[in-house]
Computed example of a mutant assay.
Amino acid sequence: MSFIAGAALVADGESFKSPGTSDFWWPLIGGDSNWAITRPAVVFLVSALLIGWFFVTVTGKKLSVVPSKRQFMAEGVYGFVRNTIGRDIIGSKDFLRFLPLLLTCFTLILFNNVAGIIPFIQYPSTGRIAFPIVLTVIVYITYHVAAVKAKGGFGKYMGSLIPPGLPGWLKPIMFVLEFLTYFIIRPLTLALRLFGNMMAGHLMLLVFIVGGEYLLLHGGNIGLNGAGVLSFAAAIVMTFFELLIEFLQAFIFTMLAALYIADAVSDHH
């Protein structure tokens, strides 16, 4: 959030109003309607177009042995996702067909995470729960479709949830636990982990920035004014820390997606 938007969170007079979830609704078109087009939605759409344009224009022309800066960047991101996440986790036999999904997830999430510290945007689109849910649904469908095909049908896939060799009385219990894990817990935690970290990180930065501004302008004495300066300094330090978290969350989401897909296409449960 920009400093102008941050200043709007400070109430009139001497009282301080802490930021909350109501301060993150920024409709550009549609006002308070549930179908409003918001700034995070526009940022997410623009990021998808920019990422697509970047990779298409880089790979659409002849690649050189000595890469340009753009080619070097594209090859670095592609190589990282391909080798570190795709091949190492899913395996050399199956990873290529899932590589477009993994590369898209990583780059899209990373861009929208980093939007949280880009001036004049300063809000991570993934801090809105709808975006992690949509990405998770895509991974969820991909994972289960791959599992059904790999196991030879839906019935065999359901049967694979029960490890062989269990006593008869334990099989129903294990089936329920595995069903909850694969169909509910995994997608739920995948979406909430990304959303929670991005929202919490942004709220933390916002509190230090808005609080520092309030103390600096309305503190009333040198001690509180100094605390405002320290609050701004802490916000700068935490911005660099937040950049690390933003990268890690993109990596973790993509890595978990690869782990789930690897489990789906494996010969054993």
Results as ranks from 00 to 15, higher is better:
residue 128 R to H: 14
residue 123 Y to N: 12
residue 122 Q to P: 00
residue 170 L to Y: 13
residue 124 P to I: 05
residue 163 P to V: 13
residue 120 F to D: 14
residue 125 S to G: 11
residue 132 P to H: 00
residue 141 I to F: 05
residue 167 P to E: 11
residue 113 N to F: 02
residue 143 Y to T: 15
residue 144 H to K: 09
residue 127 G to S: 12
residue 132 P to G: 01
residue 145 V to L: 12
residue 115 A to F: 02
residue 122 Q to N: 12
residue 129 I to M: 15
residue 118 I to F: 00
residue 140 Y to R: 04
residue 156 K to G: 08
residue 151 K to P: 09
residue 148 V to N: 04
residue 108 L to H: 08
residue 140 Y to M: 14
residue 124 P to E: 03
residue 139 V to G: 05
residue 168 G to N: 14
residue 173 I to L: 15
residue 135 L to D: 07
residue 113 N to G: 15
residue 148 V to T: 08
residue 169 W to Y: 13
residue 111 F to P: 00
residue 147 A to H: 10
residue 160 S to G: 05
residue 153 G to E: 13
residue 150 A to T: 08
residue 130 A to I: 14
residue 156 K to W: 05
residue 172 P to M: 09
residue 167 P to W: 07
residue 122 Q to K: 09
residue 166 L to K: 10
residue 109 I to G: 00
residue 163 P to Y: 13
residue 163 P to S: 13
residue 156 K to H: 11
residue 138 I to D: 06
residue 159 G to E: 15
residue 120 F to I: 14
residue 141 I to D: 07
residue 139 V to N: 01
residue 168 G to Y: 06
residue 131 F to G: 00
residue 144 H to Q: 11
residue 154 F to E: 11
residue 113 N to H: 10
residue 143 Y to M: 14
residue 149 K to L: 15
residue 136 T to C: 02
residue 109 I to L: 08
residue 138 I to Y: 03
residue 124 P to Y: 01
residue 148 V to H: 07
residue 160 S to V: 04
residue 168 G to E: 15
residue 128 R to Y: 14
residue 107 T to N: 13
residue 161 L to F: 06
residue 164 P to S: 13
residue 124 P to R: 02
residue 112 N to V: 03
